[in-house]
Every structure is written in structure tokens, then in C-alpha cells.
Amino acid sequence: MKALMYLIKHEFRMEFRQKYAIASILLFTISTIYVVYQAMRKIDDSKVWNAMLWIILLFSAFNAISKSFSTEQRSLRMYLYTTVKPQQFVLAKLIYNMLFMVILGILALGVFSLFLGDGGLGPLKLGSYLLGVVMGSMGFACLLTLIAGIAAQTDSGIGMTAVLGLPITIPLILIIMRFTTQIMKGIPFSDNAENLLYLGVLNVGLIGLTYLLFPYLWRD
């Protein structure tokens, strides 16, 4: 537990030391939103609004998480390999990625609605939509951490994340889209909570799977 806390702290310290990496992720997300703004100005159709937001979030997630294994140097990895268990290491990564993705997701939602309007969401539905963004972002983090780990091991490097990850994100995207479109339609939360439950179960399952499988990636 102590080692885990240390690793999470280490993860944060490492990432924040490389401010340019975080800045590049933010720049990617914000400039994508700006490009969409230039193309569409204001989106009134809630369906298009929803789809655009999630496409941006999806690609931001790919962009952010695919970097998460490439920033470490090889020597550092060797050092970590001898000192900590891979399970602890991947849990720290997962927690860091989840927190980072949640912050990025909320930020993207904010900037997106600033530029493109709220797509007819209104303040009332915003709460449950925000919940969807939080859970969805966590889902991206759970799903893509292992994939990024796999991609980092290949010879073609982090470019593989998109190839391996895109087909795999489809179930997650389907559940999220279902949840958020139902919010947009004004379906009461109690009827919609089922989808959130699916999302939660999927996330927990993915974390478990990553925890079990990651040690096999680390046997260099």
C-alpha cells in the first residue's frame, strides 16, 4: 500500500516534471475543439453535439494515454523492475491515468460548451452528463492503459495504440453513447442508471484484467 502511494506520487512527479507532455495533450484537445468550432460554429443538434464531444474525448484519450508508457526511460524501467511489483506499478499508472483523464474530460466538456454551446443540455441535465463524462473518461483510462503498455513493447511503438485500441473501445463507446443520448432526450436518471452500472462493471472488470495481465508484459 505504501509502495503504491509512493508510486502514484512518483507518477505525478514524473509527469509534472515533463510539463511539455501535459501541455501537448492539452494543446491537442483544445485545438481540436477549436477546429470543430471553426467548422461548425454553434451546434444546436444535440445528437451532433454529443457525437462531436465524444469523438474529441476519444482521440484526446488516445493521445494522452499512448504517451503514458513512452515517457519513461529504459534505465528507469529497469530500476523500477527490480524494486516494485508490476501489479503495483500498473495500479499506480491506472490511477494516475484515470485522474488525468477525468480532469481532461471535464476540461474538454467545459471548453467545448464554451465554444460550441451546450447543445440543448441545459443546467438540469448537466449533472448526470458530467457523471457520464467522468465514468467515460475513467473507462478510456482503464481500457487504454494495458493497450498502451502493449503498444510500447512493439517495434513500431506508440502508433500501435490506435490500431489495437480503436476496435476495442467500441463496446465502451456504445454504452457511453447510449447513456448520454438518453440524458439528451430527457429520460429520467433512474431509467438510465442501468447504463451507468454497465459502465461501472466494465471499468472494474478492465481494471482486474489489466492487473492480472500486465505482469506478463513486464518480463524483459
Partner: peptide, 25 residues
């Protein structure tokens, strides 16, 4: 994607290991 993944790793042992992880996931 599984086939592409296999083709992108040179080392035999490593390829087998990582492909197996991806296959299960």
C-alpha cells in the same frame, strides 16, 4: 489487429507473450 500486432514485434518470445496478453484482453 492481433495479426498486425504479431507482425510488429521481431523477437519471438516477446511476440508470443504480448500477443497472448492482447488475445486474452
Amino acid at each position: 489487429a492481433y495479426i498486425i500486432l504479431r507482425n510488429s514485434i521481431e523477437d519471438d518470445q516477446k511476440r508470443a507473450r504480448i500477443a497472448a496478453v492482447f488475445n486474452i484482453f
